[in-house]
Design a protein around this nucleic acid. Structure first.
Length: 760
DNA sequence: GAGCACTGC
């Protein structure tokens, strides 16, 4: 390449060597932006690329909360995210106005505020605008407020994460001078804080899609702003696609367009969005980041944990105060690294700060996660060792050094095989920049990359959009709900590929969501409403027929909560397994679905919160998780009433297993499992004489996952909710089923594959 | 016979 000039600088610590380059991130990103802009002009003259720069640009230390939208996660010790929301309801209108006036001074210093007069006319003149706002530009908080003065009807600003939507609404309502839920509000799952007054609504993209399913014209809104579009989640991609059709629909009748779309994104992907929306203009606003120096290894690492630990020690001895953030791909690596640092920390030279390692990953219990926000003793140095969660979802304050393995874990869906694989893969350049940027939020910092600079140049520019490597049954059902017949020819922002789409259509047909001509059925309309995957939605509807809906709702709710079952440490493993088998007498025979039901019943039966917590600890389940199960259960019950599958079937009075005779209990369990079998008929396997299992669909070898209560038990046939491939094929959330049920539930299964005569 | 990254409804 030779594009960049280097002043080499070496830091040496045993066999970990960094080759330094003095470029900082801001500088380098600026260069690559310039390259991109040049490319745009070269390749597409019609693209109107406007670079807007603040007239008077000076360095200002921004209030963290005012400039970014992904922060403030888990600062207290909440049972649920919603308890994070500060309560400002007691302030008078006058006090609110005063507060807003004070905040106005801060707002004025934001880069995007300084170019307000240049941006706003552009946004007003075009039905679609692509706004590239770098980190710290203030785009998420300011742009929507600018527009409030000009547009009729409501503005929706979408966010990929709930916490971001809630915090942005909090902040912007303060700036605006109102209570949350008045002129400025938010809408996320379980929480709709809006009123008839609300003009500006921060909303998760999932919630807006849900609104779109109910009102396909989004007639309440004049403007939809899609924020963080560069993250390319499935839901954002879908939304961007739907909005394209909607622009056409809403603006075709009148000369004056009444519907506006703004795509806000970090640096990359601008051209793609612009082309997708018929060469929409691109605006560019610089952000505010402190410089981050980057260093590379001069030979590749052969043991990433070892290199990570050595680098931590090296930074600790060679660099002034400031905490360290390390990126490793997964929990196992992180736990190992933490252990090693804990062990060696007391042995290190006393001149350097004492290292205090802390793990950070989503499966970590909340009380452990919160520790990363605590202060360590003077003279100590925090070392946070994290997964990708610290790249976007959690912002750790006080970070001055980032050490990046350059790896992440990614779940890849193989639709041909109907299984998912968890792979460790190199990150993208965009991701590497984002990780490094975590060191430059409060002051200048340093980033040490545990790979060579030549390896960096080999990385892909951006992370592959999620839609290309995921199961897309639910998106396809949404398209069908909106009456889109030609799924293969739809204007996908990223076309998922024919195979993936055809397989989704076939599965939806098998579930009864589509008819022979590929149109959505009544059942499909009901499934799209339920806040669970289509497979589970069909299970719920079948359960109502079998009159076991309450039990199945409980189980489905448990399945909807991540990290409900905690994985005990290796020393405690046998003890916990024995305890779970003892506690769940039925689960130990029938499997994990019934175990979940038993555990949830016990959880509900304990009234005293501290006793509940103790019980959760004993059987290694998440307390917070079960509280979420309760909320999801209530939501599903509401939706089931809404869609009224069977007028005659009513939600039963709650009865738990203990109150029933053993015969009745057995029958009920059969019906519960049969309900699930209707949704998961292709996730079944037959027990072989050698204790292995072979899938019904294609005879592949499959093993029961060690986390299952049925692990090591011999059954005639099993049904599983998920099929993952790690060291080998594993079935997760396994239940024992009777062989004859397969015939009963799916006679067409005979002789192998589920057939489909659907005309595609 | 041995282990799952991150979100969203």
């Amino acid at each position: 390449m030779g594009r960049r000039q280097k002043q080499n600088k070496k830091i040496v610590f045993s066999d970990t060597e960094f080759e330094g380059s003095r470029d900082d991130i801001a500088e380098n990103d600026k260069k690559s932006n310039e390259n991109r802009r040049r490319d745009t002009k070269l390749t597409d003259n019609k693209n109107n690329v406007t670079k807007i720069q603040p007239k008077t640009y000076k360095t200002v230390q921004f209030d963290d909360k005012s400039t970014e939208n992904d922060d403030e996660y888990m600062k207290e010790s909440p049972d649920s995210d919603d308890e994070l929301i500060r309560n400002d309801q007691r302030l008078s209108r006058g006090d609110l106005k005063k507060k807003a006036e004070n905040l106005y001074e801060v707002r004025k210093s934001l880069p995007v505020f300084k170019v307000k007069d240049q941006i706003v006319p552009q946004l007003l003149d075009n039905p679609v605008t692509i706004l590239i706002g770098e980190t710290g530009s203030g785009k998420s908080t300011q742009i929507p407020q600018f527009l409030m003065d000009y547009v009729d009807k409501n503005i929706a600003v979408t966010q990929p994460r709930r916490v971001a939507a809630m915090n942005l609404a909090m902040r912007v309502s303060e700036e605006y001078g109102c209570h949350v839920g008045e002129e400025v509000g938010y809408s996320v799952r379980f929480n709709n804080v809006t009123s008839h007054k609300t003009q500006l609504k921060y909303i998760t993209d999932g919630m807006l899609l849900r609104e779109l399913m109910i009102d396909p014209l989004l007639s309440k809104y004049s403007t939809v702003i899609v924020d963080e579009a560069h993250e390319r989640t499935i839901l954002t991609d879908l939304l961007i696609g739907f909005l394209k059709g909607l622009l056409h629909e809403r603006n075709k009748s009148s000369d004056k367009p009444d519907f506006k779309v703004i795509i806000m994104s970090a640096t990359l992907d601008a051209e793609k969005f612009s082309k997708f929306y018929d060469n929409a203009p691109i605006l560019f606003v610089e952000g505010k980041m402190y410089p981050v120096e980057r260093y590379y290894l001069d030979k590749p690492s052969d043991d990433i944990i070892d290199s990570m630990v050595k680098s931590v020690v090296q930074v600790n001895q060679g660099e002034p105060t400031g905490d360290i953030l390390c990126f490793l791909p997964g929990q196992e690596d992180i736990d190992k690294a933490v252990e090693i640092i804990k062990t060696i920390a007391p042995e290190l030279p006393k001149e350097a700060p004492m290292l205090v390692p802390m793990p950070l990953y989503a499966a970590l219990p909340p009380q452990e996660q919160i520790k990363i926000f605590s202060n360590v003793k003077k003279g100590n140095r925090k070392v946070i060792i994290s997964t990708n969660i610290a790249e976007t979802s959690v912002t750790v304050p006080g970070i001055k050094y980032v050490i990046d393995s350059g790896l992440r874990k990614v779940k890849v869906w193989r639709h041909q095989l109907g299984l998912s694989t968890l792979l460790t893969v190199p990150i993208s350049k965009a991701s590497a920049t984002q990780r490094a940027g975590r060191a430059g939020r409060e002051s200048s910092g340093k980033c040490f990359r545990l790979y060579r600079e030549s390896d960096y140049f080999k990385l892909t520019d951006t992370t592959e959009p999620e839609i290309l490597r995921s199961e897309i049954i639910s998106p396809v059902l949404m398209l069908k709900r909106l009456g889109i017949d030609d799924i293969l020819g739809w204007h996908w922002l990223e076309h998922p590929g024919q195979e993936s789409l055809v397989s989704s259509l076939q599965q939806l047909y098998t579930l009864g969501a589509l008819n022979n001509s590929g149109k959505i059925t009544d059942l499909g309309e009901k499934m799209v409403v339920l806040p669970v995957a289509p497979h589970l939605a069909s299970v719920l509807i079948k359960a109502q027929e079998y009159n076991v809906l309450d039990d199945v709702i409980d189980i489905v709710s448990c399945l909807s909560v991540d990290n409900l079952m905690l994985t005990p440490s290796s020393e405690k493993r046998d003890e916990i397994n024995a305890m779970r088998n003892e506690t769940c007498t039925l689960g130990s025979i029938y499997g994990d679905l019934i175990m979940l039901k038993e555990l949830f019943d016990i959880f509900k039966s304990i009234n005293d919160p501290s006793e509940r917590k103790k019980w959760c600890k004993d059987v290694a389940v998440s307390y917070k998780g079960f509280k979420n199960v309760n909320r999801i259960k209530k939501q599903i019950e509401d939706y089931m009433r809404l869609i009224k599958v069977d007028e005659n079937a009513e939600l039963d009075e709650y009865e738990d297993f203990e109150e029933e005779g053993s015969k009745a209990k057995e029958l009920k369990i059969d019906l519960i499992l049969k309900s699930f079998l209707h949704g998961f008929i292709s996730n079944t396997a037959i027990g072989m004489p050698d204790r292995s299992y072979r899938t019904v669909t294609n005879g592949n070898l499959i093993s029961i996952h060690p986390s299952s209560l049925l692990f090591g038990k011999k059954k005639d046939a099993i049904m599983y909710i998920e099929f993952v491939y790690t060291m080998k094929g594993y079935a997760r959330n396994v239940s024992a089923i009777k062989l004859e049920w397969l015939q009963e539930v799916a006679p067409q299964l005979q002789g192998g594959k589920v057939s489909s005569n659907q005309d595609l």
